[in-house]
C-alpha cells in the first residue's frame, strides 16, 4: 500500500483523510482484546465476591488468588507437563484415528449411493449421541484400558469429521466440476484438482467440531477410566477431588479449558486463512 505524495485536492483529499483513520495493527489487536479482558476481569470479580459472601467454605470454593498461586505451582512443578504429555498423546492418537476414519467414511458415503442410504442418517445420529454414554460398553469391551478411551474418542469425533466431508463434497459447485472435467480432470484427478480443494472449508469445519468432541470424550474417558500409574490430566483432576484439593481441581479445569481453546484457535486460524484466500472474508 504505497501512499502517493502527489498533491491531492478536493474529494481525493477527503478520501485520503478518511483512509488515514484506518487503525494500525496494535490498536486493532487492542480493540479485539479489551472486551475479552474486561469480561475475564468481571468473571474473576464475581467469583471473588461469591467467595467473600461466605456462600461456601474456602476449602470447597477457593478464592481466585489461591487458585492462581496453585496454578503457578502446578505449572512450574512437573505434574502438569507429565500429565499433559500423556493426555496430548492420547488426544493426538485418538483424534488422528478419528480423522482417518472420518475422511474415509465421509468420502465413501458421499460417493457411494448405497452407503449414503445405509449410513447417512446413522452418522448424524451418532453425532448426537453423548459420547459419555459409550463408556459403559467400552469398559465392558476393553476393561479399564487405553483402548476403551481410544474407542470412545474415535466414536465421538469421527461422525463430525465424516459429516464435514460429506457436506463439502455435496456442495462442490457443479460449474467448477464441469470446468475441471473440461480441463481434463477425470477420476482421481478430479478429486485432486477440484473436489478436495473445493470441499476444504467444510472439511476444516468438520475437523473443528470433531476436535471439540474428541477433547470432551477424552476428558470424560480420563475421569471414568482411571488406569493405574497413569497420571493424565483427567486422572489428576480425579485425585485432586478425592484429596479435596479444591484449588487444584480448578487449576486442572483451567488447563483443560485452555488446551481445548488453543487447539480450537488453530482450526479457526486455518478456516480464516482459507476464507481469505478464497476472497470470502469481507475485509481488505
Amino acid at each position: 500500500m504505497a501512499t502517493d505524495t502527489v498533491t491531492i485536492s478536493g474529494l481525493d483529499a477527503l478520501e485520503v483523510a478518511s483512509q488515514q483513520k484506518v487503525p494500525g495493527r496494535a490498536s486493532r489487536v487492542w480493540a479485539a482484546t479489551w472486551p475479552k479482558l474486561t469480561a475475564l476481569a468481571l468473571a474473576l470479580g464475581l467469583w471473588q465476591v461469591v467467595v467473600w459472601s461466605g456462600w461456601k467454605p474456602e476449602y470447597a470454593l477457593p478464592a481466585p488468588l489461591t487458585v492462581a498461586t496453585d496454578l503457578w505451582a502446578y505449572a512450574t512443578g512437573g505434574a502438569l507437563w507429565d500429565g499433559l504429555l500423556i493426555t496430548a498423546q492420547r488426544a493426538a492418537i485418538g483424534f488422528g484415528a478419528a480423522v482417518a476414519v472420518g475422511l474415509v467414511l465421509g468420502l465413501a458415503v458421499a460417493r457411494v449411493k448405497v452407503l449414503r442410504a445405509a449410513l447417512g442418517s446413522m452418522i448424524t445420529a451418532l453425532q448426537t449421541m453423548p459420547s459419555i454414554a459409550w463408556f459403559p460398553l467400552a469398559i465392558l469391551l476393553f476393561q479399564l484400558s487405553e483402548q476403551a478411551i481410544f474407542f470412545v474418542v474415535v466414536l465421538g469425533a469421527a461422525p463430525s469429521i465424516a459429516n464435514g466431508v460429506i457436506h463439502g463434497v455435496d456442495y462442490v459447485p457443479p460449474l467448477l466440476l464441469r470446468a475441471g472435467r473440461n480441463l481434463g480432470a477425470r477420476g482421481l484427478n478430479l478429486y485432486r484438482y477440484v473436489i478436495a480443494p473445493a470441499a476444504l472449508p467444510a472439511i476444516v469445519a468438520g475437523l473443528k467440531q470433531g476436535w471439540a468432541f474428541a477433547w470432551r470424550s477424552l476428558m470424560a474417558g480420563e475421569l471414568l477410566v482411571v488406569i493405574a500409574k497413569s497420571t493424565s490430566i483427567g486422572v489428576q483432576l480425579t485425585y485432586a477431588r478425592e484429596l479435596s484439593d479444591a484449588p487444584r481441581v480448578i487449576s486442572v479445569m483451567i488447563v483443560i479449558l485452555v488446551v481445548g481453546l488453543l487447539v480450537d484457535l488453530l482450526f479457526t486460524k486455518a478456516d480464516n486463512a482459507i476464507r481469505r484466500r478464497w476472497g470470502l472474508l469481507d475485509r481488505e
Binding site: L175, L176, R178, P197, W278
Partner: peptide, 12 residues
Amino acid sequence: GLMFQEPALFPW
C-alpha cells in the same frame, strides 16, 4: 475446450 458463460475459475 469450453469457455463457460461465467469465468468458473478455481477460487483457491
